[in-house]
Every structure is written in C-alpha cells, then in structure tokens.
Simulated assay, not measured.
Amino acid sequence: MPARSRGFTLVELLVALAVMALVAVMSWRGLDGMTRAQAQTRAHTDAVLALQTGLAQWTADLDAMLELRELPALDWDGRTLRIVRAASLPGQGGPQIVAWTLRGVAAGGQWMRWQSPVLHSRAELLQAWDSAALWAQNPGSEARRYEVAVMPLADWRIFYYRSNAWTNPLSSPDTRAAAGAGTGTPQLPDGVRLQLELPPGGVVSGVLTRDWARPTVGGGLP
C-alpha cells in the first residue's frame, strides 16, 4: 500500500512564515541603508562639484582681469567684489563686468555671481559697473537675468596681498599708481585670498581658503 504524502503542520507553517518575515525585514533594512548611503554620496558629490565649479569660475574671472583707463580692474566694497574681465567666450571682443556677493545670510546664504553682456563702449562699461553694485544691494528682475546662484555659503572674506602681507582690502590701499597710466588708480594687489565659510552641518563644511596670484594681463576699451 503506497505511503500517504505528509503535509506541513500548522506549527511548521507559522515558523516558516516567521523566518520569511524576518528575512524580509532584514532585506528591507539593507536596501534602505543602501538607498540612504547612495543619497548621501550623491549629495556630497553634488556639493563638491558645485564648490569646484565656483572656485574654477572665480579663478577664471581673476585670470581674465583687464586693466583699463576707465575703471579699476578690481574693487571690493566689503560686500561685493567687482571685476573687469575679458569676454568669457573667444572671439567676442570687448570687456565684461563680473560681480560676486553673498546674499540672504539670515536665510542660509547663497554665493552669487553676476556677469554683464559683452561691452562695446565706455558708456556701456560705466553703466555695467554701476549695475553690478546695484545688483548686489537690491537686484531687480532685469539684473537677476544675469545672475547665477553658485552654492550655499555661511560667510566669506577677501584679503589682498600688498607690501608682502595679506591685508584687508578696505584698509589703507597701495597707492602706487600704475606705471605710465597717469590715472592715479591704485595698482592691483599681487594676490587675492578668498575664504569661504561653508554652512555647518552640510555634506561639505568648514572653512576653505583659495589664494590667487596676479598674472600679467592687459587690454583696452575703444
């Protein structure tokens, strides 16, 4: 007589279900941990990329600085750094005004950059220079068209390298006039130090210092 097949008892089924539930919970926790780790890695990568891009643009603006008769090539008023630089794209011909500032510190702070269109006359140059200062104080809808939010920032500081020392740009400036210019415009500092205070608790935090040394540049406005 053939033996009857034996099924699972109720206790065995309950034990199997309990084991499966435990495995499912452990698997879920593992997947959740992997997802969180991927999100943190992505956030860290994005923050580092934004920082690298901002610093690269900062260096490019200073490297492309132009010394003109009409305006100082570099100006720091304690809030905004304005730069006269060569056009960012080859073949455009003419200078541009670039400004950097920190906006909305109480709300978290954003490091901002503003860039004028390519300028072709002295009047356009002077107007863009004034527009850069107004943009940093109270930007209108037109000025916002030319701005870019670079990255979150808690604070920032600027220093000039003059007379073999790093000094506050608003302290007594180097009064040596540019040779042959006859304008009385203070000579450019030999270097610019940028200190960025990154927001605490972020994926990237702390104080970062970037030093720039002045290359030899030149140019003029028709």
Rank of each mutant, 00 (worst) to 15 (best):
R36T: 11
A123S: 15
L51I: 05
L89A: 08
E142T: 08
L10W: 07
W166R: 05
L17C: 11
M151S: 00
R162Q: 11
A181F: 12
H120Y: 12
G93H: 01
R85W: 12
T9Q: 07
E197G: 06
Q195K: 15
L10D: 08
D32H: 12
A60N: 03
A21N: 09
R144K: 15
A24H: 02
E147T: 15
G220V: 06
A165H: 10
I83Y: 12
T9V: 00
D130Q: 05
R145P: 02
P222T: 12
V25W: 08
R29W: 07
R82W: 01
V48A: 08
T185M: 08
L51Y: 03
L153C: 09
L10P: 07
Q57I: 14
I97Y: 09
T183M: 07
D32P: 13
V23N: 04
M1C: 10
P215I: 05
T45G: 08
W76T: 03
L170F: 03
V98F: 03
A181T: 06
V25G: 15
V19M: 14
A178T: 09
D155S: 10
A18I: 10
T45R: 06
T9G: 07
W114N: 04
T216A: 10
A154C: 14
L208N: 12
A39W: 09
S116D: 08
L126C: 03
A21V: 07
A18M: 11
W166D: 04
A64M: 01
P152K: 00
T185N: 07
R157A: 12
S5V: 12
A86R: 02
G182Y: 13
R69Y: 13
A47K: 02
T101R: 03
R122A: 08
P200K: 00
D63C: 14
G94N: 15
R157Y: 10
A106W: 00
N168S: 11
L14S: 14
P222N: 13
A213E: 09
E70P: 04
P200C: 01
G140Q: 01
L126K: 01
L14E: 14
G54R: 13
L13W: 07
T53Q: 15
R85Q: 14
V19C: 13
A128K: 04
R29G: 06
V15G: 11
G191F: 01
T45F: 04
V150H: 05
M151R: 00
A43P: 14
G54K: 11
S27C: 14
A178L: 13
S121A: 01
T185I: 11
A99I: 02
G30F: 11
D77Y: 10
Q115L: 11
A18K: 10
L134D: 15
W100Q: 00
I97V: 14
S205C: 06
A179L: 15
A73F: 13
T59Q: 13
A179C: 12
L49M: 10
L74I: 10
F8R: 00
A60R: 05
D32F: 12
R145M: 09
A73T: 14
R42L: 06
Q52K: 11
P199E: 05
L14P: 06
R82N: 00
L194W: 07
V84T: 05
T183H: 05
N138V: 15
R29V: 09
A37H: 00
